[in-house]
């Protein structure tokens, strides 16, 4: 994105509030903010879909509900039912979490069918498939994207925001390359400012899931006054998933995968100040 177009960014943001402790007032604020700042949707838990729909009808702001969230470990039938209910409550977009364990077990037919059941029960609403990229290797991310497309999903999405880490340009780029231009790519998790947002958009995202949308838009208004300085690249490690892979939060195999990439990284020699 060469120019930081505020309206364009706003129309890419799913204004998000998914915490378990969020009460109705927070959802009301979320809806009001979405109207005020022109976000494309509010992304919320299913319990608030009906309420949010009431707040937003005729506003042009969509309601997006998460399904099987955040672990993706419900049965396919329950996910489909949950999606059906959300759509009937007013959700125009459904963000479902895949069964990450099944994906890692290479049970591809199961994963595809899991997605397909949600896609079918959500129609005509659009479905975004959250693959929780932090728990997958690059090859697994590519495969998960292919399965989502084959199952009829409209978007692939990086993260729930509840995993070990969120969206990185590396993963978004990989996903965009895999799904091509006709399927959406949503980056979510850890997007806290306009620099994060622009990086992810430049990597191929056309939708952003974030609770920091208001700040992102307001901050982005500063962009024009020193565009190159604001986007001055930090050392590559800052935005590399390998740097953020931690032993405590990742499966052994995934942790080892990322750290191996880190050890063989072309930038390691130049930017290894974290390791001195």
């Amino acid at each position: 994105m060469e120019n930081c177009d505020i309206n364009k960014i706003a129309k890419m943001i799913d204004h998000t509030e998914l915490k378990s402790n969020s009460g109705q007032k927070k959802i009301l604020n979320l809806c009001n903010e979405a109207k005020m700042f022109g976000f494309v949707s509010v992304c919320i838990n299913p319990a608030y879909v009906k309420f949010a729909y009431e707040q937003l009808k005729d506003s042009g702001v969509l309601v997006c509900s998460v399904i099987g969230f955040p672990l993706g470990m419900n049965t396919s039938k329950l996910k489909a039912l949950e999606a059906e209910q959300a759509v009937s409550d007013g959700a125009k977009e459904i963000d479902m979490v895949i069964n990450v364990g099944a994906m890692r077990d290479k049970k591809y037919d199961f994963v595809k069918d899991d997605i397909k059941q949600v896609v079918e029960s959500s129609s005509p609403s659009h479905v975004k498939v959250i693959m929780e990229t932090c728990y997958l290797t690059d090859d697994e991310i590519v495969k998960a994207c292919q399965l989502a497309v084959e199952a009829g999903a409209h978007f692939v999405k990086t993260s729930t925001g509840f995993g070990a880490f969120g969206a990185f340009p590396h993963h978004v780029k990989l996903m965009r390359e895999t799904v091509g231009p006709d399927i959406g790519v949503k980056a979510a998790g850890g997007i806290s400012n306009f620099k994060d947002a622009i990086r992810l958009i430049n990597a191929g995202a056309n939708r952003l899931g974030t609770s920091a949308g208001v700040m992102i838009l307001e901050g982005a208004k500063l962009f024009k006054f020193a565009p190159e300085a604001w986007l001055e690249p930090e050392i590559p490690c800052h935005i590399c998933p390998s740097r953020h892979a931690t032993m405590a939060k990742l499966p052994k195999a995934v942790y080892t995968y990322y750290k191996k990439k880190c050890l063989t990284c072309e930038h390691r020699e130049k930017y290894n100040r974290f390791y001195d």
Binding site: N193, G219, E232
Partner: peptide, 10 residues
């Protein structure tokens, strides 16, 4: 990190 993070040592 307000409004964005800049590398503090750069």
């Amino acid at each position: 990190g307000s409004p964005v993070f800049l590398d503090r040592f750069a």
